[in-house]
Simulated scan of single mutants.
Amino acid sequence: MQNSSAPSAGLVWSRAFPGRLDQAAHARRFVRFLLEDTPCADDAELIVSELAGNALRHTRSGTEGGSFLVEVTLARPPGTPGVRERGGYVGVLISVHDDGGGGVPRLLDHGTPPGAENGRGLAIVTALATRVGFQGAPTLGHTVWVYVRTTSA
């Protein structure tokens, strides 16, 4: 049974990227292209940059033959039978799936010391997000997801 107050999926795009550091820039452009006319395009680009970078640095995605998958879902208001234009959407769900390995994503760990060169990215992601989470395991891979509300509807 679907919760009638929850947004439902509208449009969904996904793209797999080879596990090379230069592919994070391609992932950013992919998300920018999809969301360029939404109010969350800048935030979404920053979010996917951080999540793709983490997948490449901290999992098997960044090793020879590795890859990561980016999925972007526009959510529409509950009860909307069909949306013909992007203006009818209330949020975007951004997911990045990695190849596993490493530890568990630390989405809510804000213990990075001031002045540290690394470790603030996920804190920024959680600050931009309405909701965040992950699923998976080091053996199978993780999917880190971030939901950003685009309207008050």
Rank of each mutant, 00 (worst) to 15 (best):
29 R>E: 14
26 H>I: 01
149 R>Y: 02
153 A>E: 10
44 A>V: 02
29 R>G: 08
139 T>A: 15
84 R>Y: 12
30 F>N: 00
19 G>D: 10
126 T>L: 00
2 Q>S: 13
1 M>V: 08
106 R>H: 10
34 L>A: 11
8 S>D: 01
28 R>A: 07
23 Q>C: 08
107 L>G: 00
72 V>N: 00
34 L>E: 02
16 A>D: 13
111 G>E: 15
28 R>S: 07
74 L>Y: 06
101 G>E: 09
47 I>V: 15
152 S>D: 14
74 L>A: 10
12 V>W: 05
1 M>K: 03
54 N>W: 03
133 G>N: 09
139 T>F: 07
29 R>Q: 15
91 G>W: 00
21 L>K: 13
113 P>D: 05
41 A>L: 03
73 T>G: 08
60 R>S: 08
20 R>I: 09
50 E>S: 01
13 W>C: 06
67 S>F: 09
133 G>F: 09
37 D>H: 14
42 D>E: 15
106 R>L: 07
88 G>D: 06
148 V>N: 01
44 A>K: 00
51 L>N: 10
118 N>I: 13
38 T>E: 11
67 S>T: 06
14 S>Q: 14
24 A>D: 05
56 L>W: 01
18 P>V: 11
144 V>L: 03
54 N>M: 08
27 A>R: 01
87 G>E: 13
132 V>H: 02
94 I>Y: 02
113 P>F: 04
150 T>M: 14
4 S>T: 13
119 G>Y: 10
136 G>M: 12
73 T>W: 06
66 G>I: 02
117 E>L: 12
127 A>W: 05
81 P>F: 11
28 R>H: 04
15 R>T: 06
31 V>E: 04
9 A>K: 09
